[in-house]
Simulated assay, not measured.
Amino acid sequence: MPAKLPEDAAKPLEFLARHRLAATPQNYTLAYVALSDPGSPIGRAVAEIIAEGYRIKQDEADHILEAHGTTTFFGAYERKNGELSAHLRHQTIKIGELASSAADATGALARELSEEATTLSGGGADSTSIVARMIEHSLQAQARLTAAMDEVKTLREELEAARNDAQRDELTGLANRRAIDAHLAELAEKGEPRVIALCDIDHFKSVNDRYGHGVGDRVIKLVASTLEDACTAQFVGRWGGEEFIVIMPSSDIAAVIKRLNQARQTLADTKFKLRETDEPMGLISFSGGVALAVGGKQANVTALQQADKALYRAKDEGRNCILSA
């Protein structure tokens, strides 16, 4: 019995069958991206055609791939990430080729069995020999199909890991600027209230100057993890350098300030020492500015500006405090 296709590989094939498109690598790529990332240019173009129950035609599929397949394959990746997009594109096309070859192997096996069955029914060959050959062909096809699907699974995992890595800050593991922008855009599209906080490590330049960038990196990671712990279930990202952002889908500014103050207190209660010499480092703290955004994209821009101004007021008023706009 032929191996069952994994769900990730089977769904695009089902899509192609439903729309009567040939299972070519290019069509498989179209289906895969449309199903796995509906917010991408390819996903939106396909959805627009099939929204009213229409089938997507081959010329429409070709046009979509021609228009979008060489630029942005996944919605989160912009033109400047060409190298990663090319890698994902290569992986996706390869998945399509593997799925197609697996389907071809299954079809070839069916044809071979049919030929053997005809020979057997005609009495023109030794039945034991024919059955043995049928079993051998079946096992070979099964092995090829299993190997192809194992590679599909591996490629899928690599693709997902690449997508995740591209949205994570390498030092802290927090969301990076690309992921932050995407999250803000998503909230703006919904139009729901969200509180935006910008936080900046106090006297960070002096930490770098006195102890070196290695210690500075450890301080950034420490503050990042402290913010993440205090703001559990909320969106925390690295805005850049020693600056962080916290986004909470709510209009409750006080709740965000409370969480940030918890993080400040955790840092204040910890006695930090240099790992190499045991020398006390003194207080590690941060300042923050908080603002409310209500509405679309412009609301994000305004709230970020307001949070930034509040942050610098906090710096001017002595640091190690959180102020609202």
Rank of each mutant, 00 (worst) to 15 (best):
P6H: 04
E7F: 10
L21T: 01
A22Q: 13
T24N: 06
T24C: 05
A31L: 03
A34E: 01
L35M: 11
S40Q: 03
P41R: 00
E48K: 15
I49L: 04
I49N: 01
G53R: 03
H63N: 10
I64A: 01
H68R: 04
E78D: 12
E78C: 09
R89C: 03
E97K: 12
L98V: 08
A99W: 07
S100W: 07
L109E: 02
S121N: 05
S129E: 14
Q142C: 02
A143Q: 15
K153Y: 07
R156W: 10
A161V: 02
D165Q: 11
L171I: 03
A179N: 06
H183V: 02
G191D: 12
A197V: 00
L198T: 03
I201R: 00
F204H: 06
F204T: 01
D209I: 10
R210H: 10
G212H: 09
H213E: 07
V215G: 00
V223D: 03
T226I: 08
E228R: 15
F235T: 00
V236L: 06
R238N: 05
W239C: 02
G241M: 08
E243N: 12
K258S: 10
R264T: 09
T270E: 13
K271H: 13
L292W: 04
V294K: 14
Q306L: 12
A314D: 05
A314S: 14
